[in-house]
Nucleic acid binder design. Structure first.
Length: 94
DNA sequence: CCCCTGACTAGAA
DNA sequence: TTTCTAGCCAGGG
């Protein structure tokens, strides 16, 4: 099984509202640090994957798909803050 | 096998 | 805060 297959399974295993970063997916797929590869896969694999549940390490949405991404996340019940996703462990700036 | 590209990441300026 | 640089990995030509 290739990294792409594992990553695909990981993304498919995500639950509605479950938002993870590329690094999380890469690590879960067995290749920590291959975050770039994950993005490459999602970009080159037009499969029926919930790509909108994957965001950057900073909670930033996918560049070039912000509108679509934000819309889908809202549909899943994800709370957005200034176009960014509130990831676990992150705190707002007072 | 080599080279290039990209929906990444962390750190410095 | 935004922009740039260097490091990272998987695919495709």
């Amino acid at each position: 099984m290739s990294f792409a297959e594992r990553a695909e399974e990981v993304i498919r295993g995500l639950q509605p509202g479950e938002v993870v970063t590329y690094g999380e997916v890469a690590a879960d797929a067995g290749r920590p640090g291959a975050a770039r590869a994950v993005g490459h896969l999602l970009a080159t694999r037009p499969a029926d994957l919930p790509w909108w549940r994957v965001v950057t390490a900073g909670g930033r949405l996918v560049p070039g798909h912000e509108a679509e991404h934000a819309r889908r996340l809202r549909a899943e019940g994800v709370r957005l803050h200034d176009g960014k996703v509130r990831l676990r462990g992150t705190a707002p700036d007072p």
